[in-house]
């Protein structure tokens, strides 16, 4: 399986749009309801700004194991 940078919990997402407004790489966008989708996984740098600013804990960044 290709290594996905983010896990998104669609059930928890309320579609506020904060995450994709902050994403510096435009790796995530909103669907027609405004809910987050990982549209360009290759662009994601795993910076985690989406994860730490999601009010609904719907995004989890898969970090490299140290």
């Amino acid at each position: 399986m290709a290594d996905k940078p983010l896990d998104i919990d669609q059930k928890s997402c309320k579609g506020c749009g904060i995450c994709y407004s902050l994403c510096p790489k435009k790796a995530i966008t909103g669907d027609i309801r405004g809910k987050v989708v990982l549209s360009a996984p290759d662009l994601c740098s795993r910076c985690g700004i989406c994860e730490s600013h999601c009010p609904d804990y719907a995004i989890f960044v898969r970090r490299e194991k140290k």
Partner: peptide, 17 residues
């Protein structure tokens, strides 16, 4: 107990985390 009851985009979830 999650998801919480706060509105979409409410800042309280971020601060709680």
């Amino acid at each position: 107990k999650l998801p919480h009851i706060w509105c979409p985009g409410c800042g309280h979830g971020i601060i709680t985390r």
